[in-house]
């Protein structure tokens, strides 16, 4: 085939995909705000997204905080700025690493699970069955997941922030010889509300993106087990990339607001 034609086709497919995701997003949002609401499903999703992601996200944050303290200590030592360790750890965790790494870990866990579950429901006609039982699949499957992920990720990231800072504190005081009291004081003195808030806003956006990709790819999967497998992979990859992309734009938004 003509290489230009291939490029054209890929580009057109890309535009089509963007259009579909946009329509899907609007449908999802509309059903979040219009009754009936499935509270039971929302709570179930919040449990599976939030509570069961705690170990993964907590461990990630702990080791990230620890390694951050080590690296910054080494880097800052080169221009005698060791006292900056506490403040850089807390800023790095709350502004960037907490939400981004937390989001990526949850994307791996949750976007894949959503795509697999909804994808299986699609290929076994369970989604069609929902429709024939007077239940809107968007309302029943998509809306609770979108809402649950958007609400839960900030809470999850807040916990990750605290654990990450604690990780840094442990290394700083036990290994690098910092005084516990002054490290804590440095941490708190340098932290501004906007640092935490911007991280939590990011987390909410990432939560939405994760659930959106999981539901979208699951909903549009076709062709049996193989199709579901592809949907799962696509969901994780696209959610991860979108997290990194939206991360930049949300950061810029907060940055320019300064």
């Amino acid at each position: 085939m003509n290489p230009l034609a291939i490029i054209g086709r890929v580009f057109l497919d890309f535009l089509v995909a963007i259009g579909r995701v946009t329509v899907f997003t609007f449908h999802g949002l509309r059903h979040i705000f219009a009754p009936p609401f499935y509270l039971r499903l929302l709570i179930k999703q919040m449990m599976s997204i939030g509570y069961f992601s705690l170990p993964v996200v907590g461990l990630t944050a702990l080791f990230t905080g620890m390694v951050l303290a080590l690296q910054i200590f080494i880097g800052a030592g080169r221009f005698n700025a060791e006292s900056a360790v506490a403040s850089i750890v807390v800023l790095g965790i709350t502004r960037e690493l907490g939400p981004v790494l937390g989001g990526l870990m949850v994307a791996g866990r949750v976007a894949s699970a959503m795509a697999a579950e909804i994808g299986t429901m699609r290929v076994t006609e369970q989604i069609d069955a929902l429709t024939t039982l007077s239940t809107n699949p968007f309302k029943y499957l998509v809306a609770p997941r979108l809402l649950a992920a958007t609400l839960t990720l900030p809470a999850l990231v807040l916990v990750a922030d605290i654990i990450g800072v604690m990780g840094g504190y442990l290394i700083a005081t036990h290994k690098l010889g910092f005084n516990a009291g002054s490290y804590m004081k440095n941490t708190i003195d340098f932290l501004e509300t906007i640092d935490v808030v911007s991280g939590l806003v990011k987390a909410a956006v990432f939560g939405f993106v994760i659930a959106l990709m999981g539901c979208y790819h699951g909903f549009h999967s076709k062709g049996g087990a193989q199709g579901v497998g592809k949907a799962t992979t696509d969901a994780v990859v696209s959610a991860s990339i979108l997290i990194l992309v939206t991360n930049y734009f949300v950061t810029e938004l907060f940055f320019s607001g300064k």
Partner: peptide
């Protein structure tokens, strides 16, 4: 669609729900 009941060729039962919840689904949700 409220007028319809449908038996799918492949059954299409909701595997996340118990059997009785499947049967009662249209009554509870719909």
């Amino acid at each position: 669609l409220r007028k319809f009941g449908m038996l799918f060729q492949g059954s299409a039962l909701f595997d996340s729900l118990k059997v009785w919840e499947n049967v009662a689904f249209g009554l509870i949700q719909g």
